[in-house]
């Protein structure tokens, strides 16, 4: 219903100054910083730049696959196939590179392409055949995993190229190479999601799919491409994970499926789509990783660790609710 009169101009101006997006992202990084500083209490070796470096390194894998997940969630989808696709990336890179650097430059694109094709299947199922994303991506995940199982006979063979393994351990201007990769990826992802026509179109599709169609946006093509990107990101994560561990396992992707969703959600995106920033997701991934490292250092059991992780997600959800921002806005507007 259009039964609401316009907000008085003055109010809107003041309210607008506090953009919820900026507040959300700033809050997340604030919490991460606070946690890192506070972790000095846990261990004297913590709380410094070296710990930041470790956290960045460890969260990089999650960040790579969470980018794709974030885009899928932005268009009101969900990608449950990424665990399997990470495994595909890892298994294929171990098998195809087979411990040699030769052919690296066509093997990597070939793997990413193969993974993207899996995403295209997801996207076509969701857009053309109207299968709910949850079911489509879950089914494709099960199928792909099963194919991996058959392809490897249960035990993945081979090793990724040694160059990649070296890369994961190398430093560049004193900073680990994967951290550079993370920074570049974060910058690129932010540009794509928040500062490109592509990102704007995705936000539009997620915000109001019917309106997007009427406005002439190629909704289907956009959605399919998003699933393809998500799968390619998962494949990329798989390649790096295999390079890091110098080998692949069939269950290597399992630890990233739920955290990828959690990182997106903790990062302030709406699981309903149409709202979210990649910087928030990166912050969410860092928050989850920081929490995990601190909890490990505390030496508390796996049980408490898991509980804390769940509690943090829940807390973030409650704090990042729109209503909280609305009341915050209302208070600030009144004070002015």
């Amino acid at each position: 219903m259009s039964d609401q009169t316009a907000i008085p101009l003055e109010d809107t101006r003041k309210a607008q100054r506090i953009s919820p997006t900026v507040v959300t992202v700033a809050t997340i990084y604030g919490i991460v910083a606070l946690m890192i500083v506070a972790s000095r209490l846990v261990s004297p070796s913590f709380g410094g730049l070296s710990q930041l470096e470790t956290i960045l390194y460890l969260s990089s894998f999650l960040v790579f696959c969470a980018f794709g997940q974030g885009l899928v969630i932005l268009v009101r989808g969900l990608d449950l196939s990424i665990a399997s696709v990470i495994t595909v990336g890892g298994v294929l890179s171990a098998a195809l590179m087979d411990g040699s650097n030769a052919g690296l430059f066509y093997v990597i694109p070939a793997i990413l392409l193969a993974c993207a094709l899996i995403g295209v299947v997801n996207g076509i199922g969701v857009t053309v055949f109207n299968v709910p994303p949850f079911i489509m991506t879950m089914a494709v995940g099960i199928i792909v995993y099963s194919l991996c199982l058959g392809f490897t006979g249960g035990t993945p063979r081979g090793f990724p190229a040694p160059v990649l393994n070296d890369f994961m351990g190398s430093r560049f201007i004193g900073i680990p190479a994967p951290v550079w990769l993370l920074i570049a990826f974060a910058a690129m992802g932010t540009l794509v999601q928040s500062f490109s026509p592509f990102g704007r179109k995705l936000t539009a599709v997620g915000n109001n799919p019917e309106a997007a169609y009427v406005a002439g946006l190629p909704s289907r093509r956009l959605t399919v491409s998003v699933y393809a990107i998500s799968a390619a990101c998962a494949g990329f994560t798989g390649i790096l994970l295999a390079s890091y561990a110098n080998g692949a396992t069939l269950r290597m992707g399992d630890d990233y499926l739920l955290p990828s969703i959690a990182a997106v959600v903790v990062g302030g995106s709406s699981i309903l789509g149409g709202k979210g920033t990649f910087l928030g997701t990166v912050g969410g991934a860092m928050l989850l990783t920081t929490l995990a490292t601190i909890l490990s250092a505390l030496g508390i059991g796996q049980g408490w660790k898991t509980i804390m992780e769940g509690a943090v997600i829940l807390l973030a959800l409650i704090l990042l609710r729109d209503t909280v921002f609305d009341s915050l806005r209302a208070v600030l507007v009144r004070k002015d």
Binding site: T203, A204, N207, N208, E210, A211, K275
Partner: peptide, 14 residues
């Protein structure tokens, strides 16, 4: 207008 027209999360300019 609401259902098929606007993107309420996005700015007027967008």
């Amino acid at each position: 207008r609401k259902a098929d027209g606007i993107f309420d999360n996005l700015t007027a300019a967008t």
